[in-house]
């Protein structure tokens, strides 16, 4: 027990004395409850028993919690020393000391994904709204179509209504669009370097948007029947690819930063200068 560790001697440990009061108190309380479903005499007995238990318990812990010395086992019964095992550890050969790094040692900064996502989302929104303004004669048409995925009053509305401004539609569309853009931007920072191609821009700019478009096409009937009924391929694909290009460009342009995961505690705390094996990839 931490409360009085000073009583420990070389041969014994102080442990709390076993006591009957907790079980008596608990039994008293149970009887108190049991009386409510049987007869009140049981409750009375339970109350008395609980009271006695509580007072006894108090005597156990006040003024000092009761302890008794517990003899320590003879030394040969002690646990065996934990010692070196005959096993070696496989090391990954990234850097000289990099075998236990948290991978990757360096990443694109998350801010790049964040800003890239926002920028890509902005370009995408501009293209969509421009298309809506020029072709469908309404700036708000694409906005409302997006919001119709989550808003029942828009999903059941006519095309004329969809072309008018709706505050709820704008808010929902904005939240959805910004959240999705930022999240996809973050995904770009972490996923693009993993992809098996040297030309990352093809993946990020074209292939991923195309895959994404295909996925949306397959599920749009359920996710957003309103948009599905009024779907236009060309602006959709163009805006998706624009997003990919802008966001990807932002992410690749950023310099990678170290995650510090390979550094020692001391190095990270700034107590030591730097881990000797730390290398910039």
């Amino acid at each position: 027990m931490q409360s009085d560790p000073h009583h420990d001697s070389a041969n014994s440990v102080e442990l709390p004395t076993p006591t009957a009061w907790p079980i008596i108190t608990a039994f008293g309380l149970t009887l108190l409850f049991l009386g409510l479903v049987t007869t009140l005499f049981v409750s009375l007995a339970g109350f008395l028993l609980g009271l006695i238990g509580a007072i006894g318990w108090f005597g156990d812990v006040f003024p000092h919690p009761k302890h008794e010395p517990f003899p320590i086992r003879p030394h040969d019964e002690w646990p065996k020393d934990v010692c070196r095992v005959g096993r070696t550890v496989t090391h990954l050969h990234v850097g000289e000391h990099g075998h236990r790094e948290q991978f990757p040692a360096a990443v694109h900064p998350y801010t790049a994904g964040f800003i890239g996502g926002l920028a890509g989302g902005a370009v995408m929104a501009v293209i969509a709204c421009a298309w809506g303004y020029l072709v469908d004669q309404s700036l708000w048409y694409p906005v409302n179509l997006l919001a119709a995925a989550g808003l029942p009053e828009l999903s059941t509305a006519s095309t004329e209504v969809l072309k008018q401004f709706s505050l709820a539609g704008l808010v929902v569309a904005l939240i959805t669009h910004v959240t999705t853009s930022v999240l996809v931007g973050l995904l770009y920072t972490v996923l693009l370097p993993m992809l098996p191609a040297k030309r990352e821009w093809i993946w990020g700019g074209i292939l991923i948007p195309l895959m994404w478009t295909g996925l949306i096409w397959a599920s749009l009937r359920f996710i957003n029947p309103t948009l599905n009924a009024r779907f236009e391929w060309l602006p959709f694909v163009i805006s998706q690819i624009a997003f990919g290009m802008v966001c990807g460009f932002y992410v690749f342009r950023s310099t990678k930063v170290s995650t510090q995961q390979g550094w020692t505690v001391a190095a990270r705390l700034g107590v030591e200068a730097q881990h000797p094996g730390e290398k910039k990839p």
Binding site: M1, Q2, V13, L15, P16, T19, W21, P22, I23, T25, A26, F27, L29, T30, W57, D60, V61
Partner: peptide, 16 residues
Amino acid sequence: ARDMAFPRLNAFGFWM
């Protein structure tokens, strides 16, 4: 650690 913080309360909890 060598025991719970409140060993008697621990016994009480079990019996309850």
